[in-house]
């Protein structure tokens, strides 16, 4: 389920996000390019939320998101350490029930002006 196809819940301002309702609590999204991933394990080591793991046969390891996936905060540590740029946090987290994100644009790499 991605951010775009979830309809946001309308919630009162003092209400805390309900953890398992995707309308209220959306975590960051990670996109993994399985062709470039060489299973070097570094991203699973550096992920502060500990949501990445390796799977597959020993000679063809790939990274994936854990099933009980919680807490990606789109910090992009995985992208920063990946030599092949196979992993990237592509969407920000958003907690509709906690607060609405305001004045926020898209993800951008450093731009030169």
């Amino acid at each position: 389920m991605t951010a775009s196809n979830v309809e946001k819940a309308v919630v009162p301002p003092d209400h805390l996000a309900i953890w398992d309702d995707p309308r209220e609590a959306l975590y960051g999204r990670v996109t993994i390019d399985l062709e470039t991933c060489d299973g070097c394990k570094l991203c699973t080591v550096v992920c502060p939320a500990n949501i990445l793991e390796l799977y597959g046969p020993k000679d063809n390891l790939k990274v994936r998101i854990k099933e009980d996936f919680t807490g990606c905060m789109s910090c992009n540590n995985c992208y920063a350490i990946c030599a092949g740029q196979a992993v990237i946090a592509s969407e920000p987290y958003d907690f509709a029930g906690y607060y609405e994100q305001k004045r926020i644009g898209k993800f951008e790499f450093p731009r030169k002006f």
């Binding site: 540590n77 920000p92 004045r103 898209k106 450093p110």
Partner: peptide
């Protein structure tokens, strides 16, 4: 992890 800059959110 300092080998490449990452993408970050833009702000108004």
């Amino acid at each position: 992890p300092a080998q490449q800059p990452v993408s970050r959110q833009t702000h108004e």
